[in-house]
Simulated assay, not measured.
Amino acid sequence: MTQLHFQRHRRLRQSAGIRAMVKETYLHKEDLIYPIFIAEGENIKNEVASMPGVFQLSLDNLGAELDEVVALGIPAVILFGLPAEKDAVGSGAYHDHGIIQKATRLTKERHPELLVVADTCLCEYTDHGHCGVVEGEQILNDPSLNLLAQTAISQAQAGADIIAPSNMMDGFVTAIRAGLDEAGFAHIPIMSYAVKYASGYYGPFREAADGAPQFGDRKTYQMDSSNRLEAMREAASDVDEGADFLIVKPALAYLDIIRDVKNNFVLPVVAYNVSGEYAMVKAAAINGWIDEKAVVLETLLGMKRAGADLIITYHAKDAARWLEEK
C-alpha cells in the first residue's frame, strides 16, 4: 500500500471546522426574494392547494406577512396581484389604484427599508390570460409594449424599488426603460425576466395567481426548453436595451443556463425557483420521503453555485429560519 500514489482529498473533510474553512459557495438570507400574492377584497387568506404554506392575501392581511418577512431578515419581496376584475387589455395592471399599486404603497409605508420588486406583466389582469394584447388568437407584440411601459410607470409611482417585467415580448426592456426615464424614474432598475422558458413547472403559480391562458399556450413568446444559444441572444438583447438584472426562469432544470448567463454577462443573475419546483419538494416532505430542510438548502445552494446572485423562492421564509439556526 505504501507504493500507491493518490490524492488525499478527505483531509479537507475531516472536521466541521476544516469543511467550513474550505467552503466555496455560501447561501445568505440577503440572497432571497420572497413572492407574495395579493388579492382584492377583505379578510382573505387562502392557502394555495398546490403550494402548501403559500397564501393569497388581501391587503388587510398583508401587513402581518410583511412583518414576518422583515423579522426574518429577508430584504426583498416580489408582488403579484389578483384583481377583482379583468379585461382584454389588463387595465388593472396599470391603474393607479390597482391591487399591486395599493400593496406597494402599503408595503413602503409599513416597512420603507423592505425592497419591493413589482412583477410587470398583463396575464393576471387580462380576461384571456395572455401577457399582451390579443387579436383573434394572435398575441400582438408591439401594441403590448405601451401597456407594459404604462404598468411599469404606475408601479414606480406607487413606490416600487425594482421593476421586473416577465412578459417576454420582444423589445419590452427598451420600451419600459424609455417609459420610466421619460416619467422621471431613470433611477429605477429593471430586473428583466430575460430568459423565461415555456415550462411545465408553472402550474401551481397559475393557480396561485389565477393567470392561466384561456386559449392556446405561451410558446410563441416564452422560450423552447430545448434551446440554449437562444438564451444568450435573449439576455444580450435585454442587456443592450437597459436591463440591470437578468432572471433565468425556471431554475432547477436550467442550471446550465444560469451558469451560461453568469459567464457571459456582468449583470447580477437571478434564479427563479418556481412554483412547480417548490410544490414537488413540499409534496415529498409532507409524505416523509425527504428531509425538507436539507433538500431546500441544498437546492438553493446549487443555484448559487450555478451562478445565481439572487434567488426568488417560495422557500424564502423557511430558508431564512434554517440559515439563522446554522
Rank of each mutant, 00 (worst) to 15 (best):
P83Q: 12
P83Y: 12
E85S: 14
D87H: 09
D87L: 03
A88N: 11
A88I: 09
V89D: 15
V89Q: 08
G90I: 12
G90C: 10
G92T: 11
Y94N: 10
Y94G: 12
H95N: 14
D96L: 05
D96V: 00
H97F: 10
G98A: 07
I99K: 13
I100A: 02
I100G: 00
L106W: 01
E109L: 11
E109C: 05
R110A: 13
H111L: 12
V116Q: 00
V117R: 00
V117M: 08
D119C: 10
D119Q: 06
D119S: 12
L122M: 11
L122V: 12
L122W: 07
C123L: 06
E124S: 15
Y125W: 08
T126C: 01
H128D: 13
G129W: 03
H130D: 13
G132H: 06
V134L: 05
E135D: 14
G136Y: 05
I139A: 04
I139F: 01
L140V: 13
D142T: 14
D142N: 04
P143F: 05
S144W: 03
S144C: 09
L145R: 04
L145I: 09
L145S: 07
L147V: 05
L147Y: 14
L148E: 03
L148C: 05
S154Y: 01
S154E: 08
Q155A: 09
A156D: 05
A156P: 07
Q157F: 03
A158G: 02
G159S: 03
I163N: 05
I163V: 13
A164D: 00
P165I: 08
S166C: 14
N167Q: 12
N167C: 15
N167P: 09
M168L: 14
M169C: 10
D170L: 04
V173D: 02
A175Q: 03
A175P: 00
A175I: 02
G179V: 04
L180Y: 00
E182L: 14
E182Q: 15
A183H: 06
F185D: 06
A186H: 09
A186E: 10
P189R: 13
Y193V: 15
Y193M: 13
A194P: 01
A194G: 14
V195R: 13
V195W: 06
K196V: 14
Y197M: 08
A198S: 15
S199H: 10
S199D: 02
Y201P: 00
F205I: 11
R206L: 11
